[in-house]
Deep mutational scan, measured.
Amino acid sequence: NKFNKEMRNAYWEIALLPNLNNQQKRAFIRSLYDDPSQSANLLAEAKKLNDAQA
């Protein structure tokens, strides 16, 4: 399933972002599970926040 693969990839990328705190990571990951079709958008948002907090 395409969404499962995208979701799994996004999950690990988000989990490993160095500048997000655990609460932020959990919120993004919860959103991934709520709507796997938004994986790419959620990952992009997480990366933006990660960069902003660098």
Rank of each mutant, 00 (worst) to 15 (best):
S31W: 12
L20M: 04
A54V: 10
A15P: 02
Q38V: 08
N41Q: 09
L43F: 02
K47W: 04
L16K: 14
M7R: 01
Q38A: 07
F3V: 15
A46E: 00
L20F: 01
N4E: 15
M7H: 02
S31K: 12
A10Y: 02
A44D: 13
Q38Y: 10
Q24S: 06
R30C: 11
S37E: 07
D51M: 09
L43R: 15
S37K: 11
N4Q: 13
P36C: 03
A52M: 13
N1A: 02
A27S: 09
Y11M: 15
K47H: 07
N1R: 04
A10V: 09
L32W: 02
Y33K: 06
N50I: 01
Y33A: 03
K47V: 05
A10G: 02
N50R: 01
M7V: 09
W12Y: 14
Q53E: 07
F28N: 01
R26T: 14
S31Q: 10
P36K: 03
R26V: 09
L42V: 14
A52E: 08
P18D: 08
N1G: 09
F28C: 05
L42S: 12
A27M: 09
F28Y: 15
A46R: 00
Y33C: 13
K25T: 02
Q38L: 14
Y33D: 01
A27I: 07
K2D: 15
A15C: 11
N19G: 05
A52N: 12
L43I: 09
A27H: 06
S31Y: 08
D35E: 05
L16G: 12
N9T: 14
N4K: 02
L20N: 00
L43M: 05
N21Y: 04
Q53N: 05
N1I: 04
D51K: 08
Q24M: 04
L16V: 09
A52K: 11
E6C: 12
P36D: 02
Y33F: 14
M7G: 01
R26F: 09
S37H: 02
N19V: 04
L20C: 01
L42D: 01
I14H: 00
I14Y: 00
L16D: 05
M7Y: 04
D34L: 12
M7C: 03
F3E: 15
L20W: 00
E13H: 14
A10M: 04
L49Q: 06
L17W: 04
D34H: 04
L17M: 13
A27F: 12
A46M: 01
L42W: 07
S37A: 14
L49C: 06
D51R: 11
A54I: 08
Q38W: 09
Y11N: 02
Q23M: 13
Y11F: 14
D51P: 01
A46N: 00
Q24H: 03
E45S: 09
E45F: 09
N4Y: 11
N41G: 08
Q38R: 03
N21A: 07
N4A: 06
N4H: 12
P18K: 14
A54K: 08
R26E: 10
L20T: 00
L20R: 00
A10T: 08
L32D: 00
R30A: 15
F3P: 15
N22F: 15
Q24V: 05
A40G: 13
S31A: 11
K5W: 02
E6D: 05
N22M: 08
A10S: 04
S39M: 15
I14Q: 00
K47R: 14
K48E: 13
S31P: 03
A44H: 13
R30M: 14
D51L: 09
A10F: 05
N1M: 02
N22E: 09
R30Y: 12
D51T: 08
A40T: 11
E6A: 07
Y33L: 15
L20H: 00
L17Q: 04
K25C: 05
S31I: 09
A54M: 07
Q38I: 06
N22P: 12
Q53K: 12
Q53T: 09
